[in-house]
Design a protein around this nucleic acid. Structure first.
Length: 296
DNA sequence: GGTTCAAGCGCG
DNA sequence: AAAGCGCGCTTGAACC
């Protein structure tokens, strides 16, 4: 409650611009090592959403009269990029058939039919999927799930047995990072990792985790930037009564005149989904509302 | 009055 | 011995 009050409730009203009556953030383009934007003064990329109390803050972000907010976010974009980069057959298949990827992972790892996956199994699989993107070890997975190290190690082994392409990709990425001193995104953005050669184990392992994560997080950043350029160009050409007002890593927020909503949503979805052509389709979830919470 | 740092926590 | 990526903001302590 103290965090919500001091960072958001007390502070945001003080940052309303007198001329526009709005809060304007600054997007930094050259800060994050992976190519993401960052947002500051104030940061609008960390507005609460995970708790009911926090959501009340998000509800304060509203559209002007006669307008609505559209929130469009990429579904599982980093895991889709992992499928693309690794070429793993099972993962490619899961996305080709538009499966619930955590459920599909649970079915593979626990050896049960899709329909028989329990809530706990799905939760574990989700932790594995996120952990993989971050280069997590069995130790970290054990702590995350509150299970023993040996149990976590079994999950990891099973995962790599079922998704051998992912295993190969992880090993290959570490090798390439060590040899070349950098990793890169699908579009060629590089992250240099001098510490990958370090004799200091902590530094070296950190660099290895970054080598795993940066191509996925960075490719996602590249894709949404391409989408932003496309979407903005299209809105300008059309003279659509809509504008792009925020970006939150895998999400674009637009403010749109109510009469144009249907047309804008369809085109927005297309432009975002076509911002990159990967080995799996890109899916975009769209929400509409009078406030930012409702739009989710 | 200011700066710097670590810890903690908000988001993807 | 370390053990999950990327950010920014607030707090409180230490310091000038």
């Amino acid at each position: 409650m103290a965090k919500l009050k001091s960072t958001y409730t007390d502070t945001l009203p003080e940052q309303i611009n007198e001329q526009t009556g709005r809060i304007h953030t600054c997007y930094q383009q050259g800060v994050a090592a992976t190519g993401r934007l960052s947002s500051s003064d104030p940061n609008l990329q960390n507005i609460p959403i995970r708790t009911p109390e926090g959501r009340r803050i998000r509800q304060a972000f509203i559209a002007p009269p006669g307008h609505s907010l559209i929130a469009a976010d990429y579904s599982q974009i980093e895991l889709r990029i992992m499928a693309h980069l690794s070429g793993d057959a099972s993962l490619l298949n899961a996305f080709a058939e538009d499966r619930d990827v955590h459920q599909a992972t649970a079915a593979e790892v626990f050896g049960v039919p899709l329909a028989a996956v329990s809530g706990d199994q799905r939760r574990s699989a989700k932790a594995i999927n996120f952990g993989l993107i971050y280069g997590m070890s069995a130790f970290g997975l054990a702590r995350q799930l509150g299970i023993s190290r040996s149990e976590a190690q079994r999950y990891v082994d099973l995962y790599f047995e079922r998704y051998p392409g992912v295993k190969r990709y992880m090993d290959e990425t570490r090798r390439q990072a060590r040899e070349a001193g950098f990793v890169e995104t699908v579009f060629g953005r590089r992250l240099y990792l001098p510490d990958i050669q370090s004799r200091n184990q902590a530094l070296r392992q950190y660099a290895e985790r970054s080598a795993i994560n940066a191509p996925m997080q960075g490719t996602a950043a590249d894709i949404i930037k391409r989408a932003m350029i496309e979407v903005d160009g299209w809105l300008q050409r059309e003279g659509a009564p809509a504008r792009l007002i925020m970006q939150v890593h895998d999400e674009l927020v637009l403010e749109v005149a109510d009469e144009a909503i249907d047309r804008v949503v369809g085109q927005l979805r297309e432009h975002m989904a076509r911002a990159a052509e990967l080995a799996v389709p890109l899916r975009v979830d769209v929400g509409i509302g009078k406030n930012w919470d409702e739009a989710h």
